[in-house]
Nucleic acid binder design. Structure first.
Lengths: 344, 344
DNA sequence: TTGTAAGCGTTATCAA
DNA sequence: TTGATAACGCTTACAA
């Protein structure tokens, strides 16, 4: 059995090249520590045999994998796709491989994924948002795996972060809406528990309301799972109020697209009858009819910056420095002054 | 240095529990081969120490990882997201972990990713489409890693596949367009090289044209990279012809959304002035204005079926059986009869 | 510049 | 039911 070894090993290569395994390993890892002729001989043998280093063996011997893990709430939508893509491109440029796992917005699943990625030898981890069981951070510390938070910025948090200020970003948007004259406000958001980004965005609207002298608890809030249909349903719910809002903030662009869908289906004109805004500025926002006014997040920059940061943490055993990025408003067509006609 | 060992090992657990490492390993892998009391002692120690098996060591000793790799052209869009999500859920249910890599629609990168995943110990691989360098298949054979193709079905291909017939699916759509009276047809597609799905869809339109007695080389084709903007540009190009088409097929929904965007920007009514169709039926297709008529692909079913199939290949050393899934037309608003007015 | 050999943390075979 | 112990494939002192 097993006469036909499936994959050649270092030893096979060494034998073929007539050198020791140490030399082959050196050629693979520190080419210039080996004489030119030897190097070529070895490379030839490697190629000839179709040799592939065994990752597990390497991880065990070297105790590092040049692998970074990332755990995002979901792969199924565009919100994280662009940033993660940039993250992975930047990692790749530095010779690192990205392993992506998704938590389905579940704290328990996130914890499981953290363990899975650490077990797989991730040298460092990228996590989304600051909200999580301290046990997770403790686990990471115990295993000496550096972690960086993104999509959220909080210099006071336990883990370093590369992200933006969700409160300020939403507050800026809400200020504009208030300046246009909106007074009856509603907000559709992802579930707030264990989601500091979502809570930050709510807080942003509230602060803008207080600034404008409004009672911030007058804000009608509907929490719902991520999705087009759920966004549509939440919008319907919010508009079913005896005195419906003239302005519906959505915690992200996908929920906002759902709201736009529901509005059209209900024969409501956006922004004539009601204004709708999103958050993220994903591709969809431009395709929407009407164009979706939203908060632009510099996803690609964020991903690239996060990559640089986590690599520094891994390689230089650095504490990890927090970095704040700026967001800005993208005016399109879905936000306008409220209807002037008093119907009641 | 390194006095404080970072992660506890099997040996630490064994010592804490007062048993041998073999027993700890048994508790972890074959719990019922160990006496109840011993088992509990060990489990307690595992928990106490926060022990986590070292993946690399395990891979090396057991020569399997319960990991499946998947290489998709891109993570940045929705086309693969849903299917892959279903794939991973099904794998998870069976105790497997999914590793996703993306090839950016590049054959060379795909090859690199295949090697990376095999090096990481993937027990099996999911690939998209049948087009690839035979060297890749040879490599997989040499390393004894079973692979399954999805998003395309071809019982004659070298690798087994779980997917649908791209030709027939597009042909069915094109038949409808022809039945509505369209005669000047154009098609916007992803680059055809190394993409059997895209080529199949073109062929589908051509066959329908021939069936209808049309010269199939009258089909105007524009190849372009994946994206909203590129789809828009390709649409503009196609419509700039001296005699513009009344019908623009798009090879996927994202290109179609780009076309819709461009049409709106150009003041063209869809489907009044020109009909547009997509392929895939991603979420966007429903949000589009007008609603996008497209080919529905059973992504979730495909992912789940592929998972079952690849696991069978891995566990039972099975050859892998090919399975064809059905697609169907989703009528929405972007396809209608051509304008009746003769302008020329 | 190259080779020898000792780990790295598991699993699995064989004995007890 | 449990324990020794030999792999597994690689990296890296240390020696030559």
């Amino acid at each position: 059995m097993r006469e036909n070894r499936a994959s050649p090993t270092l030893e096979d290569v060494a034998r073929a090249a007539g050198v020791s395994t140490a030399t082959v390993s050196r050629v693979l890892n520190y080419p210039d520590k080996v004489a030119g002729a030897t190097r070529e001989k070895v490379r030839h043998a490697v190629h000839e045999l179709g040799y592939l280093p065994h990752f597990g063996a390497r991880a065990m011997a070297a105790n590092r994998t040049r692998t970074i893990g990332a755990i995002i709430p979901t792969m199924e939508n565009a919100i994280f796709a662009r940033g993660i893509q940039a993250f992975q491109e930047a990692l790749h440029d530095r010779g690192y491989t990205l392993l992506v796992a998704s938590s389905s917005y579940s704290a328990a699943l996130e914890e499981e994924q953290v363990r899975a990625l650490v077990a797989r030898g991730a040298d460092g981890l990228l996590l989304i948002g600051h909200d999580r069981d301290p046990a997770v951070t403790a686990f990471l510390e115990r295993h000496r795996v550096p972690a960086l938070v993104s999509w959220s910025f909080d210099p006071a948090a336990r883990l370093p972060s590369v992200g933006f200020d969700n409160i300020a970003a939403m507050q800026a948007l809400a200020r504009e809406a208030l300046a246009l004259g909106h007074r009856r406000l509603a907000l559709v958001t992802a579930p707030l528990a264990a989601n500091d980004r979502a809570r930050g965005r709510v807080e942003g609207v509230r602060r803008a309301m207080r600034e404008a002298g409004l009672a911030s608890d007058a804000l009608e809030i509907v929490e719902t799972a991520y999705g087009l249909e759920t966004g549509a349903a939440a919008f319907r719910q919010v508009m079913a109020a005896p005195v419906p809002p003239t302005m519906v903030f959505c915690g992200n662009d996908v929920l906002a697209m759902g709201a736009l869908m529901a509005a059209r289906a209900a024969g409501l004109d956006v922004p004539g009858d009601v204004s709708v805004t999103g958050f993220d500025d994903i591709d969809l926002a431009r395709v929407a009819v009407p164009g979706l006014t939203t908060v632009h997040v510099p996803h690609r920059l964020m991903g690239a910056t996060a990559a640089r940061s986590i690599i520094a943490m891994v390689e230089e055993d650095q504490a990890g420095e927090s970095l704040q990025l700026e967001t800005d408003l993208r005016w399109r067509d879905s936000l306008a002054p409220p209807p002037t006609t008093r119907r009641d």
